[in-house]
Amino acid sequence: MQLISKFSRSGLMLLLILLIMLPFLISSSYLTHIVTLILLWSFVATAWAYMARFGMVSLGHGVFLGIGAYFPTLMFNYWGVTPWIGIFVGLVVAIVIAAILGYTCFRFGLLGDYFALVTLAVAEVSALVIMALREITGGSLGYTLRSTGRLADMQFADKRVFYFMALILLIGAMYIWRRIDKSPVRLALTAIEESEIAAASLGVSVIRYKMMITLLSAALTALGGSLYAQYVTYVSPDTIAGVGVSLSVCFKAILGGMFAVLGPFVGSAIIVSLEEYVRISLGTSFLGLSQIIFGVSLLLMIIFMPRGIMGSMSMAVAKRLNRISARH
């Protein structure tokens, strides 16, 4: 066990150094762009897995992405409020919405599939709201951020700034993940997942811990949405709110493995790269095809590799090590 953690720690350090150097090593701004997207989605998928790894599978995180993306964008375009403040507003709104949704679900004891279904419906509603307010939000056509190129408006001549912002957020999210692992919060949430009544009878406040992780997950997701919108300077219900993006976030985390801290990153890296590959090699006409491929492979994943790539790998390594140590 110790060997594994030592192994994964040095692996993490290596990865980190590589990621820090990458924008300086590669001259292609296109590649940097792709890796920026990977980092952004890894961050969001990691935040999503905060909940999912404790059995709270939300299919509605598009809501928080959307809030995070639309609030600073609209506030900037209409009122000239700098996104530095707009992001904060989006964050607060996301937390408030998460608190209302979460409390309602947890109060009524919505678990598992029921929780997933309710959050899915909420994601759909968020897209509908954006459509309904098309006068303001641009509806399904989306909405483009006004360009000023000023630092005060969170616009940078060098796009690599976003790369590093995303990297810092991702590292932060992974750090919090590790901290949770080493804190009573993990014990509480694991117990709650298996038996709410057993947890409660040992003094664990079920609603408090569920709320805590939900608010954290929603806040980080909104932050990811904000940064994404500022980066691509374009928001639309398809790319940043609603059911589609909610599901694609889950898929990234599940593919990589939502129980491993690196899982969501690995999943995001694979999917973002594949999506780009499909887009370039097959053209936009096959966008639908790639969706189908992803859908089918998600199904296969859940059936054959429920712990995802990272989960299966660490299990295989653990088995190996056990066998080796058994021989000695």
């Binding site: 009573p184 014990l187 509480a188 694991t190 117990a191 997942e193 298996e194 038996s195 009544i197 057993a198 947890a199 009878s201 040992l202 003094g203 664990v204 406040s205």
Partner: peptide
């Protein structure tokens, strides 16, 4: 405190962690 007629160990926590739930919370 209570025990359950059908024991309810938390299977994805270790034996020690199960008891830690009680000591912490």
């Amino acid at each position: 405190a209570r025990t359950f007629q059908i024991p309810q160990p938390i299977k994805s926590l270790t034996v020690a962690e199960n008891v830690m739930l009680g000591t912490i919370f």
